[in-house]
């Protein structure tokens, strides 16, 4: 059985966030006053690594950056970044948060 954690997500962008997934679950993020999409989840189940997926649309070269906190610990000291090309950016990746490392695949 997967262990559960408190998770906080901050996705900073001026692009439109179409879809964000954690561990395959679509999670609705709401844009706040400073163009950051945020959410905080209690008791979120994680199997080994944390899988994420970001899909943004907007003007080309618009950047996005993702920060994730697990149990209030920043597991992305270097934010995960992307940039819009051809009107969109769709990035899939996983974070081995127990070793503070992440790998990305597009």
């Amino acid at each position: 059985m997967a262990k559960t954690y408190k998770i906080s997500v901050e996705l900073t962008t001026e692009a439109t966030l179409q879809l964000f997934r954690l561990e395959g679950f679509a999670i609705a993020l709401v844009r706040t006053l400073d163009n950051v999409y945020r959410i905080s989840l209690q008791d979120f189940p994680i199997e080994d690594e944390l899988d994420f997926y970001v899909h943004c649309t907007g003007w080309n070269k618009t950047p996005w950056s993702l920060k994730i906190f697990i149990d209030d610990k920043d597991i992305t000291p270097e934010p995960i970044r992307g940039e819009i090309e051809k009107g969109y950016s769709a990035v899939r990746g996983s974070i081995n948060f127990q070793q503070d490392q992440h790998e990305q695949t597009v």
Partner: peptide, 10 residues
């Protein structure tokens, strides 16, 4: 200006 926007969810 502020716009509320929400990404897709379950």
């Amino acid at each position: 200006q502020y716009f509320m926007s929400k990404s897709a969810g379950a």
